Amino acid sequence: MKIERHKKRGELILELTPLIDVVFLLLIFFLVATTFDEMRGGIKIDLPQSTIKEISDIKEIQVIIDKNKNMVLHYKDKGKTEEVNVDKNNLKDKLSERLGNMKEKNVIISADKSLDYGYIVDVMTISKEAGAQSLDIDTSKKK
Rank of each mutant, 00 (worst) to 15 (best):
K128P: 09
L99Y: 08
G118C: 04
K92L: 11
V107Y: 06
V121K: 08
R98H: 13
T125C: 01
E82V: 14
D116K: 10
V84D: 02
G118S: 07
D122R: 00
I108L: 15
E83S: 01
E97R: 14
S127P: 13
E129Y: 05
L99V: 03
N85M: 08
M102L: 14
S114D: 09
Y117A: 10
G118N: 13
R98G: 03
D112H: 09
I120P: 02
E97H: 11
K80A: 04
D87M: 06
N85R: 09
K103C: 04
K113V: 14
V123W: 02
K103I: 06
N106W: 09
V123Y: 03
V86H: 03
L95D: 01
T81G: 01
E82A: 13
D93V: 03
I108F: 12
I120E: 13
E97C: 02
N85K: 07
A111V: 04
N89V: 13
K128R: 14
A132N: 05
K80V: 04
L99D: 00
Y119C: 00
S114N: 11
D112M: 11
V121P: 03
T125F: 11
V121A: 12
E97N: 13
G100T: 10
G131I: 05
D122Y: 00
A132T: 05
E129H: 01
V121F: 08
M102T: 00
G118Y: 03
A130R: 09
N101T: 12
L115D: 00
L115P: 01
K103N: 06
E83V: 02
E129A: 15
R98V: 11
K105C: 13
V84E: 03
A130H: 09
V84N: 09
K92D: 13
D112G: 01
E129R: 10
G131A: 12
V107H: 08
I108G: 07
D87A: 05
A111Y: 10
T81H: 07
A111F: 07
T81S: 12
D93G: 08
E82W: 12
S127Q: 08
D87F: 10
V123N: 09
G118L: 09
I108Y: 11
G131Y: 05
V121D: 06
T81M: 11
K113N: 07
I109A: 12
A130E: 10
G118V: 06
E83M: 03
V84R: 05
I109D: 14
V107M: 11
N90E: 04
A132K: 02
T125L: 14
M124W: 08
N89T: 15
K94S: 06
E129T: 09
S96C: 12
E104V: 06
N106S: 08
L91V: 07
E82D: 14
I109E: 15
T81E: 08
I109L: 15
A130K: 10
D93L: 07
K94P: 03
I109K: 00
Y117V: 13
D93M: 05
S114M: 02
G131F: 01
A132C: 12
N106K: 14
G100E: 15
V86S: 01
D87G: 12
K128G: 11
N101Q: 14
S114I: 04
T125N: 13
A111W: 02
R98A: 15
I120M: 10
M102P: 04
N85P: 06
K105S: 03
I120A: 04
K128Y: 09
K113M: 15
N106V: 15
K103A: 04
N89W: 10
V84I: 00
V123F: 05
N101V: 13
L91M: 08
K80I: 04
T125K: 15
